[in-house]
Design a protein around this nucleic acid. Structure first.
Lengths: 127, 127
DNA sequence: GATATAGATCGATGGCCGTCGATCTCCAGC
DNA sequence: GCTGGAGATCGACGGCCATCGATCTATATC
């Protein structure tokens, strides 16, 4: 083991053994991670999560006036949450006269669901 | 239709037709929604999502020193993210000498994965 | 004991976000 | 046109959070 004393008056202690070979890397590309993280963030509030649960379970579209009494917050807060879901691309709405009807966008959760379920992106299972 | 003029000098216009019968309710109880929302919130950052991806994919435990160079942030930021994941109950760590090894807690994502996949809680599919 | 390494934690910073009351915009009936 | 209902939006408020540099704690070697 060669010792280079040029401009190195102190003897530096040898570094410890490396812990391991570097063998890890993310499969998920940054752009995809950002997409999925934005979906996760939209679901990261209990009210928004329950909104998705309601909308997803319902066969048709749901009027906002039905959603508001489900929660212990003001109408404006429910509207705000619906806006967050809209902007995350999870839901959309349709105006009918006085009323606004919301629905989950088909497959908006698909990529994230596939990833979190530990599956490849294409569905490979008949359930 | 009786008109009550007592202390009601103005004639109030009749309310419009209701939009629909109220038929929606969340299946997900508040406590479960809060649990799952906290998991979602932990995943709601791209770096943390990629950390879970790496740790989940790896057969064993992964040293922090391997994780840090995967991202374009400081060591302290990676440590902070790992702490968030720990506190959300998604990962745990084990000390070996100088090094700390992280792993995903088995089935920590199970409840959330089942819900987001639209499945009942018990798995019903062999893939 | 001194020194170095690994990584957890602290505190500051500036941006993000859930909630509210107020207000606005659109729709509909009189 | 006036009035009222539905719900979207605004702005304020206070708490939350990602990032950094600095520092601390635990481990290991000389």
């Amino acid at each position: 083991m060669a010792v280079d004393l040029q401009l190195s008056p102190k003897q530096k202690r040898p570094a410890g053994e490396p812990c391991c070979e570097p063998v890890v890397y993310p499969d998920v590309e940054r752009a995809q991670a950002e997409r999925m993280a934005s979906v996760a963030k939209a679901l990261g509030d209990p009210i928004r999560l329950q909104l998705i649960d309601v909308l997803r379970k319902h066969a048709g579209k749901v009027c906002v006036c039905e959603l508001i009494p489900l929660f212990d917050v003001r109408q404006s807060t429910v509207s705000h949450h619906l806006k967050v879901l809209r902007e995350a691309g999870l839901v959309d709405s349709e105006r009918r006269g006085l009323w606004a009807y919301y629905y989950v966008i088909p497959d908006a959760l698909g990529e994230f669901a596939a990833w979190i379920g530990g599956e490849p992106v294409e569905p490979s299972c008949e359930c």
